[in-house]
Computed example of a mutant assay.
Amino acid sequence: MASYEAAFDFLLAGDHEMVIYGNLKRLHIVPRDNRYDDFLQEARLLFIKAYQTFPQDPTSYPHQFLAYANTKIHWGLVDQLRRDQRGMALTTPDDSETLSELSQPDLDLDWRINESDVIKTVLKRCSDAEQRYLLGILRGRSVAEIAHQYRVSRGTVYQWRHRVARKMHDVLQKDFHVG
């Protein structure tokens, strides 16, 4: 097994770090994203792990290794993104948090909106199908799970989502005077 130092030296040699930046760009994780530094560090660790698990000597087969590392980094970051999204779906904010605090925690806004009031208002304006979508999402279900539950296509569920988003936008603008 290769040492951490050898793996890190290989990472910094030449333009090997471009494998990392390419994967971040490919996954739409850009420098202005507040998760960027975390994912950059995770990608570097994945590169070192790939260096250590590569079946041959990476310095002897650099092109093969970089292709191998690219795949390992990509799927490692995809897995991390999935874990992050599942964690966000499983943790639901309590009623004391407001939409303004959730969307922009840095800003000191003078208006506060209770998200349960917004959801109740939107639910009243939704059709039965749109209510199914919104309640499914609030319960942490994916589009595929909602589609399977109601025996419709995912495309149908995406249409429900689009209509719910429009209604949410209208409710926020008209009823809650946001935006």
Score class of each variant (00 low, 15 high):
residue 170 D to E: 14
residue 95 D to M: 05
residue 109 L to A: 05
residue 46 L to S: 12
residue 48 I to T: 08
residue 136 G to N: 07
residue 138 L to G: 14
residue 166 R to T: 12
residue 151 R to W: 02
residue 70 N to V: 00
residue 176 F to C: 06
residue 134 L to H: 05
residue 38 D to G: 14
residue 101 E to G: 07
residue 144 A to F: 08
residue 4 Y to K: 10
residue 160 W to P: 02
residue 69 A to I: 02
residue 154 R to F: 00
residue 139 R to T: 03
residue 74 H to R: 08
residue 145 E to R: 04
residue 75 W to H: 11
residue 140 G to K: 12
residue 160 W to A: 01
residue 56 Q to H: 13
residue 140 G to P: 04
residue 125 R to M: 13
residue 18 M to T: 10
residue 74 H to P: 03
residue 124 K to Q: 14
residue 84 D to V: 14
residue 20 I to V: 12
residue 168 M to L: 15
residue 178 V to M: 10
residue 122 V to E: 07
residue 29 I to D: 01
residue 111 W to P: 00
residue 94 D to T: 14
residue 114 N to A: 08
residue 78 V to G: 03
residue 22 G to R: 08
residue 144 A to H: 11
residue 34 N to R: 14
residue 103 S to K: 06
residue 18 M to E: 15
residue 155 G to A: 10
residue 89 A to S: 11
residue 49 K to P: 00
residue 98 T to Q: 06
residue 14 G to L: 07
residue 129 A to Y: 11
residue 93 P to Q: 07
residue 144 A to Y: 09
residue 2 A to Q: 10
residue 143 V to L: 09
residue 24 L to R: 05
residue 14 G to R: 09
residue 160 W to G: 02
residue 91 T to Q: 09
residue 109 L to N: 01
residue 88 M to E: 07
residue 83 R to D: 01
residue 163 R to S: 12
residue 38 D to E: 13
residue 108 D to H: 08
residue 77 L to P: 05
residue 130 E to Q: 15
residue 97 E to F: 15
residue 8 F to M: 15
residue 146 I to S: 09
residue 61 Y to W: 06
residue 145 E to Y: 06
residue 36 Y to G: 12
residue 99 L to S: 04
residue 82 R to T: 04
residue 143 V to P: 02
residue 12 L to T: 09
residue 76 G to Y: 01
residue 61 Y to D: 11
residue 172 L to H: 01
residue 68 Y to C: 02
residue 169 H to K: 12
residue 34 N to H: 09
residue 97 E to D: 05
residue 98 T to Y: 08
residue 61 Y to R: 11
residue 58 P to M: 05
residue 82 R to F: 03
residue 65 F to T: 03
residue 168 M to P: 00
residue 141 R to H: 14
residue 8 F to Q: 14
residue 67 A to K: 10
residue 34 N to C: 09
residue 74 H to Y: 15
residue 176 F to V: 02
residue 119 I to Q: 05
residue 34 N to E: 13
residue 154 R to C: 11
residue 34 N to D: 15
residue 73 I to M: 04
residue 179 G to Q: 07
residue 39 F to S: 12
residue 74 H to N: 13
residue 134 L to E: 04
residue 68 Y to G: 04
residue 162 H to C: 06
residue 5 E to D: 13
residue 30 V to P: 00
residue 91 T to N: 07
residue 90 L to S: 10
residue 75 W to R: 01
residue 76 G to N: 04
residue 102 L to M: 13
residue 96 S to T: 15
residue 25 K to P: 00
residue 47 F to M: 06
residue 13 A to P: 00
residue 137 I to W: 10
residue 178 V to Y: 04
residue 7 A to C: 13
residue 119 I to E: 06
residue 99 L to W: 02
residue 51 Y to P: 01
residue 1 M to N: 06
residue 143 V to E: 08
residue 86 R to T: 02
residue 43 A to D: 03
residue 78 V to K: 04
residue 100 S to Y: 00
